[in-house]
């Protein structure tokens, strides 16, 4: 089992695409700190990168990788190996490759130039987003024979979670502006891993703009240790549930 994930991870690290992804993050992560004199602003820029680039790249790469390694997977399936250990190997190998690129590209400069709780939360968010979107990509890929359709679907998921979800949320807020909806919004947020990741970091950086009654409610929740804990728990669930579906499909699938 470890062998499969190890070989996939090492194969991924030799992959040109993952190298480009890693170097893109590194250029952004290290470069931002070198040109921007205010680390408070840099961390916000890196937050945007983490929220937009990480889900997109991991999702697309994981999908492409899964289809490109279809023959390798079939080869593995012939061997006397358990299917559950094969799919775990693929999942773990892919995520460790992405997480490693993220840590080197964004995590390391954050820890070196701006070691604060906000940075640590951003790194955690980045790691979780890598895992979650790899999971979502594999979920789509295992349920879909056609590579192009899978990529399209993963792109749609990405657009939905990064942009459309917040758009719908904002529209709802306008419709229900007269009601005390803050608590319900808190729960709705957990339906979107990107929102949870964003909130986790924002609450650590800029309390100022979030003050006022609504802000205070969010601040009370996410600013506290309990809030951070629940948010991280939500992200873990977002990582685990797609994997369970992937596994179920992979075990019963006819190759």
């Amino acid at each position: 089992m470890q062998n499969i994930s190890y070989s996939i991870a090492s194969d991924l690290l030799k992959n040109k695409a993952i190298f480009i992804y890693g170097s893109l993050l590194a250029v952004l992560g290290w470069g931002m700190f070198l040109i921007e004199s205010q680390p408070e602003k840099t961390i916000l820029a890196l937050l945007q990168i983490t929220l937009i680039v990480v889900p997109l790249m991991t999702g697309i790469f994981a999908t492409i990788y899964y289809y490109n390694s279809a023959e390798f997977v079939q080869l593995l399936l012939i061997q006397p190996l358990r299917r559950s250990s094969i799919i775990w190997g693929i999942f773990a190998g892919l995520t460790s490759g992405f997480v490693l690129s993220f840590l080197v590209g964004i995590g390391l400069p954050l820890l070196l130039f701006y070691p604060t709780t906000a940075s640590i939360h951003l790194i955690l968010s980045g790691i979780f987003l890598s895992v979650i979107f790899t999971g979502l990509a594999l979920l789509v890929s295992t349920h879909q024979q056609d590579k192009a359709r899978s990529i399209g679907f993963v792109l749609l998921l990405w657009i939905f979670f990064t942009f459309i979800f917040d758009g719908i949320l904002l529209w709802t807020m306008y419709q229900l502006a007269d009601y005390p909806i803050e608590k319900s919004i808190l729960f709705v947020t957990f339906l979107n891993p990107v929102s949870v990741a964003r909130t986790l970091v924002v609450m650590q950086t800029e309390a100022a703009a979030l003050l006022g009654l609504s802000g205070a409610i969010f601040q009370d929740f996410f600013g506290s240790l309990k809030g951070s804990f629940i948010a991280i728990l939500a992200l873990i669930i977002w990582g685990v549930i797609p994997y369970l579906f992937i596994k179920r499909k992979f075990l019963t699938r006819d190759f």
Binding site: I52, L169, V202
Partner: peptide
């Protein structure tokens, strides 16, 4: 301006959608 009208929208601070 949005947060001025709908205070709960502060929750979307730094959302990629808001950027857009």
């Amino acid at each position: 301006k949005i947060t001025n009208e709908v205070p709960s929208a502060t929750f979307l601070l730094h959302s990629p959608f808001v950027r857009l």
